[in-house]
Design a protein around this nucleic acid. Sequence first.
DNA 1: TTGACGTGATACCAAAAGGTACCTTAAATA
DNA 2: TATTTAAGGTACCTTTTGGTATCACGTCAA
Lengths: 110, 110
Amino acid sequence: MSDPTQLAFRALSDPTRRDIIRILSAEEKTIAQLTDQFDMTRAAVKKHLTVLSDGGLITVEAKGRERINRLNPQGLGPVFDWLQYFDRFWDDRLSDLKAAIEAPNPKDNQ
Amino acid sequence: MSDPTQLAFRALSDPTRRDIIRILSAEEKTIAQLTDQFDMTRAAVKKHLTVLSDGGLITVEAKGRERINRLNPQGLGPVFDWLQYFDRFWDDRLSDLKAAIEAPNPKDNQ
DNA sequence: TTGACGTGATACCAAAAGGTACCTTAAATA
DNA sequence: TATTTAAGGTACCTTTTGGTATCACGTCAA
């Protein structure tokens, strides 16, 4: 399966994965650090991270023996693209969001 | 399972269901009419409709022996609520969307 | 270099998801 | 009323998913 939209929606469909995303939105974490916050094994957390990575929602950087997991906000792009289809139901107000999302380098103010 | 956010994300996690939502955004349909547009049985389509209904994304009206399936745009509310958490990554521009979504009676212009 | 630690990979299991087949029920109509 | 047709319900099958257990590998530090 390689459709980015499907991969992103799938990644968001699990509550643990949504929690991980929230945690990573505050601070980058290693797998072990994330595991501390859940009642499951490291292997299970790592599987979720793989799904999130496949969905483009996080990036992983190997650093020594650790793996630093970071949120990739742009990964939500396909989700917003899809949702944007429903513009008409909200009077095109959703278009504003779409434009905002697509602005380059979301995190810095340009 | 009864968490509205989870039910909505789950409903969106399948490509067939997202297609159904798009179709219903153009026009209301019976189960049989929807089945015509997919390569699967009516029972399978009906299962997807049940998931969409559980997720609050569609409404179903019994009309004689038929069931009229309609899009319920407000059902996307919990999804936007969740996504809104990431405001800061887009400079609070996502807040505008949130406000738009939460305006009463989205479909009529008030 | 030895050991502890963080991770990757694999095998395995249970439950959920997506699908079909079949039967029943309800409504429109001849 | 009898027939046809659309829909619901249930049982069942297969694949995927979420989880554990276990072992191997690379890296850091004593």
